[in-house]
Design a protein around this nucleic acid. Structure first.
Length: 490
RNA sequence: CGGGAUGUAGCUCAGGUGGUAGAGUACACGGCUGGGGGUCGUGUGGUCGCAGGUUCAAGUCCUGUCAUCCCGACCA
């Protein structure tokens, strides 16, 4: 049992914080809301990045990089967009410091004031659309399918490691198309890329849907999203894909000549996922002993711990393990042999449990005699004895089983926590229980706002492939054509 | 951004009414150990978040500031 990890039951958000710090994923920094992603946390992020990048390229996208700074004038061109982000922008006003003439330290050099302030990007639509204007003349220049991996800054009031930080890492795709249908197809396609990745790779089940107008991206006509449910019953938006219509094209005057020689505005999309996925990963699978990682994302999938007394015994084990390592690496398993003499076996067990390594192999003199090893799973903490000669195939299928089991477990939990309600009282009760609440809504922003005010719950999404079935709005009793999912959210 | 709390050794914290800085843990060295964070001994380690102020004297009192946590508002 971990020493200082707060149990989930006693304080879920403290458990989360403790876990992030103790599992060596990230730490707070000296700058408000900005985190240090530590090597172990970053290794997991790199796994996420690598797989997503692969999937983006499989769907025809290419990577590029745009500047961190956005001139203020660009930023203000799309009205809804400004409205949405203005309150949380970091602004660069000067470009030089000087020694404090009145004492120690260093001060801003007031003579070095920028003519036009620069905004640190909270997202890159504006600078990218300003660029696309130069890239697009003809239908032959379309589509543009660009992604960038970057950091962005949003001056958040209340931050939490990975879930909401002032600076975060993400990717943002920005595409431009000749037709509306093509752009809508793209936005939906990317939602599926996200959904499939999160389910298959992160073992996190998602609900795919669209946002209500209240929750829609500033400047978008439609926001598609994947929503997930955390262990404490709160929802977490894991990714979004926006159909931008011609809003940004019009704001930045991005026109092209079509096959008939007519001038048209291009159609756009943007889509992104961020280091917030790390938060989703942590909160979906982990337990009171620490992190639980799905094998596909674990930087180390298998750790081998020798148990011995004296150097002689260790040397014997080293020789046996050497062969095991070769066998496991040959079939593509990320395995680590921790034969450090500076830590004891019990300490190591706890350490790798805290860090969520999916499989632990312990090998000692007793095993050598019997020709076996002890194999322990992180997800359900079970242990078994496995014959040495069977080990590689056993581990391979075990990793697959763990990946699958983690998904099934969270999927069951998600489904068990979608509550269907038809009146206001049970609506409130269901929200207090946690989870998604499926209810009718009259489709107006006013009603959604009122519900938010009364319950702190928002519409997380209107599920795609939702059953169209008439009903009455949970609050107003007005007619509604389908159910939507409400929840309290991160 | 409003309310509350906190900031002292790497970490967790103790230090009434101002008077030479403490513990546990971690770390270093050594012994016994080793199948779930072992144990005994010795030792290293602190401009008390930062900047001012009051005072003969400030970890302690005052002002400001930065950061963290909790509650609220905000959060494409």
């Amino acid at each position: 049992m971990a020493k200082n990890l707060t149990p989930r039951k006693s304080d879920y958000s403290r458990w989360y914080n403790d876990l992030v710090i103790q599992a060596d994923l990230a730490d707070n920094s000296g700058v408000r809301g900005c985190m240090i992603i530590k090597p172990y946390g970053f290794a997991i992020w790199e796994k996420i990045q690598a797989e997503l990048d692969h999937r983006f390229k499989e769907t025809g996208h290419v990577n590029a990089y745009f500047p961190l700074f956005i001139p203020k004038s660009h930023f203000s061109k799309e009205a809804d967009h400004v409205e949405g982000f203005a309150k949380e922008c970091a602004v660069v006003t000067h470009y030089r410091l000087k020694n404090n003439p009145d004492g120690p330290g260093i001060v801003v050099d007031e003579t070095a004031k920028l003519e036009e302030e620069l905004i640190v990007r909270p997202t890159s639509e504006t600078i990218i659309w300003d660029t696309y204007k130069k890239w697009v003349q003809s239908y032959r220049d379309l589509p543009i399918l660009v992604n960038q991996w970057a950091n962005v800054v949003r001056w958040e009031m209340r931050t939490r490691l990975f879930l909401r930080t002032s600076e975060f890492l993400w990717q943002e795709g920005h595409t431009a198309h000749a037709t509306e249908n093509e752009a809508i197809f793209e936005a939906k396609q990317m939602l599926d890329v996200y959904g499939d990745f999160v389910e298959e790779h992160m073992a996190i089940p998602v609900v795919r849907g669209t946002k209500s107008s209240n929750e829609r991206f500033a400047g978008a006509l439609e926001t598609y999203c994947i929503e997930t449910l955390m262990q404490d019953g709160k929802a977490l938006q894991a990714g979004t894909s926006h159909f931008l219509g011609q809003n940004f094209a019009k704001a930045f005057d991005v026109k092209f000549q079509d096959k008939n020689g007519e001038m048209n505005y291009v159609w756009g999309t943007s889509w992104g996922v961020s280091t917030r996925l790390m938060g989703a990963l942590i909160m979906t699978h982990s337990d009171d002993n620490g992190l639980v990682l799905p094998p596909k994302l674990a930087p180390t999938q298998v750790v081998i711990i020798p148990i011995y007394r004296g150097e002689e015994e260790l040397l014997k084990l080293d020789a046996v393990v050497k062969g095991l390592l070769e066998k496991l690496k040959k079939i593509g398993i990320r395995v680590k042999y921790d034969n450090r003499d500076t830590y004891k076996p019990g300490w190591k067990f706890n350490e790798y449990e805290l860090k969520g390594v999916p499989v632990r192999i312990a090998i000692g003199p007793r095993d050598l005699e019997k020709g076996t090893v002890e194999v322990a799973r992180r997800d359900n903490l079970s242990k078994e004895s496995v014959k040495l000669e069977m080990l590689d195939s056993h581990i391979e299928s075990l990793l697959n089983e763990i990946q699958e089991q983690l998904f099934i477990k969270s999927k069951v939990s998600l489904e068990d926590n979608i509550h269907i309600v038809d009146n206001w009282n049970s609506f409130k009760l269901a929200l207090d229980k946690g989870g998604f609440v499926s209810a009718h809504w009259d489709g107006t922003p006013e009603t959604e706002n009122k519900i938010k005010e009364l319950t702190k719950a928002t519409i997380r999404c209107i599920p795609l492939n939702n059953e169209k079935k008439d009903g009455l709005c949970i609050l107003t009793g007005n007619p509604s054509s389908e159910r939507v999912l409400f929840a309290r959210a991160y």
